[in-house]
Design a binder for these strands. Structure first.
Length: 628
RNA sequence: GCGCCCGUAGCUCAACGGAUAGAGCACCCGCCUUCUAAGCGGGCGGUUGCAGGUUCGAGUCCUGCCGGGCGCGCCA
């Protein structure tokens, strides 16, 4: 029953090995196309990149001047925020990285570089610290400028173009059409959907996809189970659901609907007559239910791919023929697994795919003994199909119980695409559903699990989506139905939403307390933003300025949960400032005696509100404007 | 037995190969005449499971152990 792909997960083992590396941005040649414009835009918005370019330029100048040898590799030169804000706004490791090949001491390179960087615009101070870090502090005016940029960019703030319009296929949920979605599926659903949004946000063309496993034995079981309910709907008394069939009560609806459509047409028919039709009917009903449940979560897939359709159009044969032509299919006998009860084991010749040639541990069977294809064979055909539709970056979101399936699928993708496509798999760990600390018992309706719908109906879709992103996907997650609706700082959903609502609260009051101010963000961008000088105000603005970088990093690592953590940081910084205004009235946002400063403060508040809203949008959570 | 994932404060978890490993909870001490105290500030708390290795630098990468989870020929 766990036989679905959508279990909870893990974030990315392959995070380090992914092919989504951003190359250094080249100077722009043609500014005519929208893409080029966007590229230019992203360089300006992610100021870390901008400064990295400037620093590399200075390093090249040092080479020209003879201070550094030629032919240095700048690939490892990084520009990033220092961990400790006291060290400045930007730090670079350039001197330490280049020291060895340059044959100079890191501190010496650092000093020379620092001297040059001091001359750059917007740079207030540069110093060398530790083993050779070069720390830059930027002028306050730079942050005022950044804040204005945030406001002028509006909801587009943070969008980047590291994806360069490349296609990415994200396959997620892909639950078997044998029952309603469960809480376990919810995690994969949310992780996949948020990842897709994240990738879109940085410029990938994303296809959201669902693979319907409608060809195996499980859907025959579904058909037989539904048939029983059909007879029940026609008045027959069903004592007990035989073991091996699905007992879930949701199938009563299917039986009822079938009886209404077909009457008693199948009641005396032999199984081989009714099964195909009942199966199709039941699958359709299940998929409608699943789509409704996904819609309740705000999830909509672009493509629903059917395993049965692949089989019926002989795509599997075609796929296997391709592999055969490459000499990758053979008949052989596998070794018995060690350490596993070998009781019913007997050596048996099987049709095998040489997945070991592509990194798998053993070769994998592609045919069952009844001659039909294994799930794996069909899945290979499916992945080839994705590739042929133009996707060279494939992402699958699976439950952790599918971990053993990853290598063979990656091997298959390598073989089928001749290494032109890459498959990355995110495994989602289990979700433990609790209520006030106690495990929640199974649901009768689903037959086994608490359904996603039940949970969404109880706590709301935004809460489900946010909580599912509060852990890395490879860590298990406790979902406590009581805690997640608690209105306290312990509840991250509430905490972030509260910050957003507080922003709106301030903006609502602004008109009364300081009349005549425009609250429009582009107007606020023209406020005297250099009047924001408090260290916590600047810290907040710097945090907002880091949103593009956060997005790019999260997308590159395939870790949508980082957005949730970032929003908690923004919320904390904002709540902190709020309370600071309680202690020190001069730090209040609304100051009737100083409309100019008020406008600047409101600009900051508006920017916080915008960034939180943008982050929640990536997560698929609706921001609330009021919490009372 | 083999493969994959995980192991960080008492608890739940962060940390882009970087500087003195960070939050929250719990515990202790503070902050509401004022924009939502549904909040904020401070204190306490660590040999990042163990041992090696690579690196200028390792919680992060590599190897080996220990502990936990998942998986391991015709289930999907």
């Amino acid at each position: 029953m766990a036989a679905t792909r959508g279990s909870p997960g893990r974030g990315g083992p392959s995070a380090a090995g992914g092919r989504l590396h951003r190359r250094d941005d080249r100077p722009l040649r043609h500014a005519g196309t929208p893409q080029a414009l966007r590229h230019l835009c992203s360089d300006i918005m992610n100021f870390y990149k901008d400064f990295r370019n400037k620093i590399v330029t200075e390093l090249e100048a040092m080479t020209t001047a003879g201070a550094l040898p030629a032919g240095l590799d700048y690939a490892n030169v990084k520009v990033e925020p220092p961990r400790d804000p006291d060290h400045g706004d930007l730090a670079t490791n350039a001197a330490m990285v280049l020291a060895k090949t340059a044959g100079q001491k890191p501190r010496a390179i650092a000093e020379a570089l620092a001297e040059r960087l001091r001359a750059l615009p917007d740079v207030e101070a540069v110093d060398v610290a530790g083993p050779g870090f070069v720390n830059l502090r930027l002028v306050p005016g730079f942050w005022a400028h950044m804040l204005a940029t945030v406001l002028r960019s509006g909801t587009a703030w943070g969008e980047g173009n590291s994806g360069r319009g490349r296609k990415v296929n994200v396959e997620y949920v892909s639950a078997n059409p044998t029952g309603p979605l469960t809480v376990g599926h919810a995690r994969g659903a949310v992780v996949g959907d948020a990842l897709a949004s994240l990738l879109e946000k940085v410029g990938f063309k994303v296809c959201r996809e669902y693979y319907i496993n409608d060809a195996g034995g499980q859907v025959d079981t579904l058909a037989r189970s539904a048939y029983l309910r059909y007879r029940e709907a026609l008045g027959e008394r069903i004592e007990e659901i035989p073991s091996g069939l699905y007992p879930g009560e949701y199938l009563k609806d299917v039986g009822q609907a079938l009886s209404e459509r077909d009457g008693d047409r199948w009641i005396d028919a032999p199984e081989d007559e009714w099964l195909p039709e009942v199966r199709r009917f039941a699958i359709d009903q299940m998929m409608e239910m699943i789509k409704r449940d996904l819609a309740a979560m705000g999830i909509e897939h672009e493509v629903f791919a059917s395993e049965r359709a692949l089989v019926e159009r002989h795509a599997v044969e075609e796929t296997v023929a391709f592999l055969e032509s490459r000499g990758l299919i053979y008949t052989g006998v596998l070794e018995p697994p060690k350490g596993k009860a070998p009781e019913d084991w007997e050596p048996r010749p099987q049709t095998l795919f040489r997945s070991t040639e592509f990194g798998d541990d053993i070769d994998r069977p592609i045919r069952k003994s009844d001659g039909s294809w294994t799930y794996f064979a069909a899945d290979m055909a499916y992945h080839l199909d994705k590739y042929r539709r133009g996707h060279t970056t494939l992402v699958n979101i699976w439950g952790a119980d599918h971990g053993g399936y990853v290598k063979r699928m990656q091997a298959a993708v390598k073989a089928l695409t001749e290494e032109k496509a890459e498959l990355r798999v995110l495994l989602c760990q289990l979700v433990k559903l609790l209520r006030a600390g106690e495990p929640v018992k199974m649901s009768k309706r689903s037959g086994n699990f608490v359904t996603l719908r039940e949970v969404v109906d109880e706590v709301g879709r935004g809460v489900v989506r946010f909580i599912m992103l509060t852990r890395k996907n490879d860590a298990s997650l406790d979902f406590d139905l009581e805690k997640v609706v608690e209105q306290s700082k312990d509840n991250p959903v509430f905490y972030v939403q509260y910050a957003h609502a507080r922003c709106h609260s301030v903006l609502r009051h602004a008109g009364d307390e300081v009349p005549g101010l425009s609250l429009d963000s582009t107007t606020l961008a023209d406020a005297k933003l250099d009047r924001l000088t408090d260290s916590d105000e600047l810290a907040l603005i710097k945090l907002l300025a880091g949103w593009p970088r956060l997005l790019e990093g999260a997308a590159e690592a395939y870790e949508p949960h980082r957005v949730a953590f970032y929003l908690q940081e923004v919320a904390a910084a904002f709540h902190g400032l709020w309370t600071k205004g309680k202690d020190d009235a001069s730090l209040r946002f609304l100051l009737p005696d100083d409309p100019e400063l008020t406008a600047a403060r409101l600009a900051m508040v508006r920017a916080v509100q915008q960034v939180i809203a943008a982050g929640l949008e990536v997560m698929g959570v609706e921001p609330v404007e009021e919490l009372r």
